[in-house]
Design a protein around this nucleic acid. Structure first.
Length: 285
DNA sequence: TCCTCCCTGTTC
DNA sequence: GAACAGGGAGGA
Protein backbone atom coordinates (compact mmCIF):
# COMPACT_ATOMS: atom_id res chain seq x y z
CA UNK A 1 0.00 0.00 0.00
CA UNK A 2 1.93 2.96 -1.25
CA UNK A 3 2.30 5.64 1.40
CA UNK A 4 4.81 8.49 1.46
CA UNK A 5 8.01 6.36 1.47
CA UNK A 6 6.74 4.05 -1.28
CA UNK A 7 5.60 6.90 -3.53
CA UNK A 8 8.90 8.69 -2.90
CA UNK A 9 10.71 5.50 -3.98
CA UNK A 10 8.54 5.12 -7.08
CA UNK A 11 9.23 8.72 -8.09
CA UNK A 12 12.98 8.40 -7.44
CA UNK A 13 13.20 5.22 -9.53
CA UNK A 14 10.92 6.52 -12.28
CA UNK A 15 12.68 9.89 -12.63
CA UNK A 16 15.84 8.64 -14.42
CA UNK A 17 13.67 6.80 -16.95
CA UNK A 18 11.28 9.61 -17.83
CA UNK A 19 13.08 12.91 -17.31
CA UNK A 20 13.37 14.84 -20.59
CA UNK A 21 11.58 12.07 -22.48
CA UNK A 22 8.74 12.67 -24.89
CA UNK A 23 5.39 10.88 -24.69
CA UNK A 24 4.72 9.34 -28.09
CA UNK A 25 1.37 7.76 -27.22
CA UNK A 26 -1.00 7.02 -24.36
CA UNK A 27 -3.66 4.33 -24.00
CA UNK A 28 -6.27 4.22 -21.28
CA UNK A 29 -7.33 0.61 -20.74
CA UNK A 30 -9.84 1.18 -17.96
CA UNK A 31 -11.87 4.36 -18.12
CA UNK A 32 -12.89 4.23 -14.44
CA UNK A 33 -9.27 4.82 -13.43
CA UNK A 34 -9.41 8.34 -14.82
CA UNK A 35 -10.23 11.15 -12.41
CA UNK A 36 -13.45 13.07 -13.26
CA UNK A 37 -11.47 16.32 -13.70
CA UNK A 38 -8.99 14.65 -16.07
CA UNK A 39 -8.33 15.35 -19.72
CA UNK A 40 -8.02 12.22 -21.89
CA UNK A 41 -4.51 10.74 -21.53
CA UNK A 42 -4.16 10.76 -25.33
CA UNK A 43 -3.70 14.53 -25.13
CA UNK A 44 -0.28 13.87 -23.55
CA UNK A 45 1.08 12.83 -26.92
CA UNK A 46 4.01 15.02 -27.87
CA UNK A 47 4.54 16.41 -24.35
CA UNK A 48 7.98 16.30 -22.74
CA UNK A 49 8.55 15.33 -19.10
CA UNK A 50 10.24 18.17 -17.21
CA UNK A 51 10.03 16.81 -13.64
CA UNK A 52 8.91 13.85 -11.54
CA UNK A 53 7.75 14.88 -8.07
CA UNK A 54 5.80 13.67 -5.07
CA UNK A 55 3.21 15.43 -2.93
CA UNK A 56 1.89 13.32 -0.06
CA UNK A 57 0.94 9.99 -1.61
CA UNK A 58 0.60 11.50 -5.09
CA UNK A 59 3.18 10.99 -7.82
CA UNK A 60 3.38 13.83 -10.35
CA UNK A 61 4.91 14.12 -13.79
CA UNK A 62 5.22 17.69 -15.02
CA UNK A 63 4.99 18.11 -18.77
CA UNK A 64 5.99 20.77 -21.27
CA UNK A 65 3.27 21.09 -23.93
CA UNK A 66 5.28 23.11 -26.49
CA UNK A 67 5.21 20.24 -28.97
CA UNK A 68 1.93 18.62 -27.96
CA UNK A 69 0.04 17.13 -30.87
CA UNK A 70 -3.21 18.63 -29.62
CA UNK A 71 -2.87 22.22 -30.82
CA UNK A 72 -5.28 23.54 -28.18
CA UNK A 73 -2.91 22.47 -25.42
CA UNK A 74 -0.10 24.67 -26.66
CA UNK A 75 -1.88 27.60 -25.06
CA UNK A 76 -1.20 25.88 -21.73
CA UNK A 77 2.53 25.82 -21.13
CA UNK A 78 2.37 22.99 -18.63
CA UNK A 79 0.33 19.87 -17.95
CA UNK A 80 0.60 17.57 -14.95
CA UNK A 81 -0.03 13.87 -14.79
CA UNK A 82 -1.01 12.95 -11.23
CA UNK A 83 -1.11 9.32 -10.13
CA UNK A 84 -2.74 8.21 -6.89
CA UNK A 85 -1.67 4.59 -6.36
CA UNK A 86 -4.09 3.97 -3.48
CA UNK A 87 -3.82 0.32 -2.38
CA UNK A 88 -2.23 -1.63 -5.18
CA UNK A 89 -1.23 0.83 -7.89
CA UNK A 90 2.23 0.89 -9.43
CA UNK A 91 4.11 2.86 -12.04
CA UNK A 92 6.51 0.60 -13.91
CA UNK A 93 9.06 1.25 -16.65
CA UNK A 94 9.22 -1.50 -19.26
CA UNK A 95 10.95 -2.13 -22.60
CA UNK A 96 8.88 -0.85 -25.53
CA UNK A 97 7.72 -4.29 -26.69
CA UNK A 98 6.17 -5.24 -23.33
CA UNK A 99 2.47 -6.08 -23.64
CA UNK A 100 0.04 -4.72 -21.05
CA UNK A 101 -0.86 -7.17 -18.28
CA UNK A 102 -4.34 -8.01 -16.98
CA UNK A 103 -4.13 -5.14 -14.45
CA UNK A 104 -2.58 -2.50 -16.67
CA UNK A 105 -4.98 0.46 -16.53
CA UNK A 106 -3.03 2.95 -18.63
CA UNK A 107 0.17 2.83 -20.64
CA UNK A 108 2.44 5.57 -21.92
CA UNK A 109 4.78 5.08 -24.84
CA UNK A 110 7.85 7.24 -24.38
CA UNK A 111 11.05 8.05 -26.18
CA UNK A 112 14.22 9.45 -24.72
CA UNK A 113 17.95 9.58 -25.38
CA UNK A 114 18.20 5.84 -24.69
CA UNK A 115 15.42 4.93 -27.10
CA UNK A 116 11.76 4.00 -26.75
CA UNK A 117 10.17 2.43 -23.66
CA UNK A 118 6.82 2.19 -21.86
CA UNK A 119 5.44 3.21 -18.52
CA UNK A 120 2.53 1.15 -17.15
CA UNK A 121 0.03 2.26 -14.56
CA UNK A 122 -0.93 -1.14 -13.12
CA UNK A 123 -3.51 -1.54 -10.36
CA UNK A 124 -5.04 -4.85 -9.26
CA UNK A 125 -7.72 -3.33 -7.08
CA UNK A 126 -8.52 -0.51 -9.48
CA UNK A 127 -8.75 1.99 -6.61
CA UNK A 128 -5.99 4.15 -8.04
CA UNK A 129 -6.63 7.14 -10.28
CA UNK A 130 -4.87 9.20 -12.90
CA UNK A 131 -5.47 12.90 -13.45
CA UNK A 132 -4.15 14.76 -16.48
CA UNK A 133 -4.73 18.51 -16.26
CA UNK A 134 -3.33 22.02 -16.40
CA UNK A 135 -2.03 23.30 -13.04
CA UNK A 136 -5.05 25.59 -12.40
CA UNK A 137 -7.35 22.55 -12.53
CA UNK A 138 -5.26 20.94 -9.80
CA UNK A 139 -6.17 23.85 -7.56
CA UNK A 140 -9.86 23.12 -8.16
CA UNK A 141 -9.42 19.56 -6.86
CA UNK A 142 -10.43 19.73 -3.17
CA UNK A 143 -8.19 16.82 -2.17
CA UNK A 144 -5.14 18.59 -3.60
CA UNK A 145 -6.08 22.00 -2.29
CA UNK A 146 -6.64 20.72 1.25
CA UNK A 147 -3.54 18.53 1.50
CA UNK A 148 -1.66 19.18 4.73
CA UNK A 149 2.07 19.86 4.95
CA UNK A 150 4.75 17.31 4.17
CA UNK A 151 5.61 15.55 7.45
CA UNK A 152 9.35 15.73 6.72
CA UNK A 153 9.16 19.52 6.36
CA UNK A 154 7.31 20.30 9.56
CA UNK A 155 8.29 21.38 13.06
CA UNK A 156 6.66 20.41 16.35
CA UNK A 157 5.01 23.80 16.81
CA UNK A 158 3.29 23.48 13.45
CA UNK A 159 2.20 19.91 14.20
CA UNK A 160 0.81 21.01 17.58
CA UNK A 161 -1.20 23.64 15.76
CA UNK A 162 -2.64 21.03 13.41
CA UNK A 163 -3.66 18.77 16.31
CA UNK A 164 -5.18 21.57 18.36
CA UNK A 165 -8.94 21.33 18.68
CA UNK A 166 -9.06 17.89 17.07
CA UNK A 167 -10.91 15.62 19.45
CA UNK A 168 -10.88 12.58 17.14
CA UNK A 169 -8.52 9.68 17.80
CA UNK A 170 -4.87 10.52 17.24
CA UNK A 171 -4.55 7.83 14.57
CA UNK A 172 -7.63 9.08 12.69
CA UNK A 173 -6.12 12.58 12.65
CA UNK A 174 -2.75 11.27 11.39
CA UNK A 175 -4.47 9.37 8.57
CA UNK A 176 -6.42 12.49 7.58
CA UNK A 177 -4.47 13.91 4.63
CA UNK A 178 -5.58 17.40 5.62
CA UNK A 179 -3.48 17.11 8.79
CA UNK A 180 -0.34 15.78 7.12
CA UNK A 181 0.16 14.59 3.56
CA UNK A 182 1.34 11.04 3.02
CA UNK A 183 0.78 9.11 6.25
CA UNK A 184 -1.15 5.84 5.88
CA UNK A 185 -1.95 2.90 8.10
CA UNK A 186 1.56 1.40 8.26
CA UNK A 187 3.45 4.53 9.22
CA UNK A 188 0.72 5.75 11.58
CA UNK A 189 0.94 2.52 13.60
CA UNK A 190 4.74 2.42 13.51
CA UNK A 191 5.24 6.03 14.55
CA UNK A 192 2.62 5.87 17.33
CA UNK A 193 4.39 2.83 18.76
CA UNK A 194 7.79 4.53 18.52
CA UNK A 195 6.37 7.62 20.26
CA UNK A 196 4.67 5.42 22.92
CA UNK A 197 1.28 6.99 22.21
CA UNK A 198 -2.07 5.19 22.28
CA UNK A 199 -3.73 5.57 18.85
CA UNK A 200 -7.08 6.16 20.56
CA UNK A 201 -5.97 9.23 22.50
CA UNK A 202 -7.82 12.38 21.48
CA UNK A 203 -5.45 14.24 19.17
CA UNK A 204 -5.75 17.47 21.14
CA UNK A 205 -4.83 15.76 24.45
CA UNK A 206 -1.09 15.58 23.73
CA UNK A 207 1.35 17.53 25.87
CA UNK A 208 3.94 19.57 23.91
CA UNK A 209 6.65 17.00 24.63
CA UNK A 210 4.36 14.25 23.32
CA UNK A 211 3.77 16.17 20.09
CA UNK A 212 7.55 16.55 19.74
CA UNK A 213 8.05 12.82 20.34
CA UNK A 214 5.36 11.98 17.79
CA UNK A 215 6.93 14.17 15.12
CA UNK A 216 10.43 12.85 15.81
CA UNK A 217 9.17 9.24 15.63
CA UNK A 218 7.16 9.86 12.48
CA UNK A 219 10.07 11.53 10.72
CA UNK A 220 12.47 8.81 11.84
CA UNK A 221 10.15 6.03 10.62
CA UNK A 222 9.53 7.77 7.28
CA UNK A 223 13.25 8.42 6.70
CA UNK A 224 14.19 4.85 7.57
CA UNK A 225 11.44 3.53 5.29
CA UNK A 226 12.65 5.71 2.40
CA UNK A 227 16.20 4.45 3.02
CA UNK A 228 14.85 0.89 2.70
CA UNK A 229 12.93 1.76 -0.49
CA UNK A 230 9.55 1.40 1.24
CA UNK A 231 7.56 -1.57 2.54
CA UNK A 232 6.42 -4.41 0.29
CA UNK A 233 3.43 -6.02 2.00
CA UNK A 234 1.83 -7.60 -1.03
CA UNK A 235 2.51 -6.20 -4.42
CA UNK A 236 4.22 -2.86 -3.92
CA UNK A 237 7.11 -2.44 -6.37
CA UNK A 238 9.21 0.55 -7.43
CA UNK A 239 9.40 1.71 -11.06
CA UNK A 240 12.00 -0.97 -11.79
CA UNK A 241 9.87 -3.75 -10.31
CA UNK A 242 11.97 -4.07 -7.16
CA UNK A 243 10.47 -4.67 -3.72
CA UNK A 244 11.19 -2.54 -0.67
CA UNK A 245 12.65 -3.92 2.56
CA UNK A 246 11.14 -1.88 5.39
CA UNK A 247 8.51 -4.58 6.07
CA UNK A 248 11.37 -6.46 7.75
CA UNK A 249 11.70 -3.60 10.26
CA UNK A 250 8.06 -3.34 11.37
CA UNK A 251 7.68 -3.13 15.14
CA UNK A 252 3.89 -3.51 15.21
CA UNK A 253 2.20 -3.35 11.78
CA UNK A 254 0.84 -6.79 10.91
CA UNK A 255 2.22 -8.20 14.19
CA UNK A 256 -0.98 -8.45 16.26
CA UNK A 257 -0.66 -11.19 18.89
CA UNK A 258 3.12 -11.31 18.57
CA UNK A 259 5.38 -10.04 21.36
CA UNK A 260 5.89 -6.32 21.73
CA UNK A 261 9.50 -5.54 20.75
CA UNK A 262 9.78 -3.35 23.85
CA UNK A 263 8.05 -5.24 26.69
CA UNK A 264 7.49 -8.70 25.21
CA UNK A 265 3.78 -8.84 25.97
CA UNK A 266 1.36 -9.65 23.13
CA UNK A 267 0.50 -6.75 20.81
CA UNK A 268 -3.20 -5.94 20.65
CA UNK A 269 -5.17 -5.77 17.47
CA UNK A 270 -8.01 -3.28 17.39
CA UNK A 271 -9.97 -1.09 15.02
CA UNK A 272 -9.40 2.67 15.07
CA UNK A 273 -10.85 5.03 12.49
CA UNK A 274 -12.20 1.98 10.66
CA UNK A 275 -8.66 0.64 10.14
CA UNK A 276 -6.91 -2.41 11.47
CA UNK A 277 -4.59 -1.13 14.19
CA UNK A 278 -1.85 -2.84 16.19
CA UNK A 279 -0.46 -1.40 19.41
CA UNK A 280 1.00 -2.33 22.77
CA UNK A 281 -1.44 -1.55 25.59
CA UNK A 282 1.42 -1.41 28.08
CA UNK A 283 3.95 0.69 26.15
CA UNK A 284 1.53 3.07 24.43
CA UNK A 285 -0.38 5.48 26.62
C1' DT B 1 -17.27 12.50 13.54
C1' DC B 2 -18.28 8.05 12.09
C1' DC B 3 -20.04 4.68 8.76
C1' DT B 4 -20.43 2.48 4.18
C1' DC B 5 -18.91 1.77 -0.28
C1' DC B 6 -15.68 0.95 -3.93
C1' DC B 7 -12.48 -3.10 -5.83
C1' DT B 8 -10.28 -7.96 -6.14
C1' DG B 9 -6.87 -11.25 -4.48
C1' DT B 10 -5.72 -13.81 -0.42
C1' DT B 11 -6.69 -16.10 3.76
C1' DC B 12 -9.45 -18.55 6.90
C1' DG C 1 -17.86 -18.68 0.65
C1' DA C 2 -17.18 -15.19 3.95
C1' DA C 3 -13.90 -12.06 6.06
C1' DC C 4 -10.31 -9.09 5.30
C1' DA C 5 -6.94 -5.72 3.42
C1' DG C 6 -7.66 0.12 3.30
C1' DG C 7 -7.61 5.54 1.13
C1' DG C 8 -10.80 8.55 0.18
C1' DA C 9 -15.63 10.06 -1.26
C1' DG C 10 -19.97 10.81 0.26
C1' DG C 11 -23.69 10.61 3.32
C1' DA C 12 -25.85 10.12 8.02
Amino acid sequence: MPELPEVETVVRTLRPHVLDCRITGARLLRAACLHPLSLPPACLTGCRVTAADRRGKLALLRLDTAQAEAQALRATPELVLVAHLRMTGSLLAHPCATAPGPYTRCLLDMRGARGPFRVFFDDVRAFGQLLVCAPPTLERWPFWRDLGPEPLELDATALAGRLAGRRAALKAVLLDQKTLAGVGNIYADESLFAARLDPRRPADSLAPEEVAALLASLQDVLRRAIDQCGSSIRNYRDANGNAGAFQNSFAVYGRGGKPCPRCGRPLHRLRVAGRGTVCCPRCQR
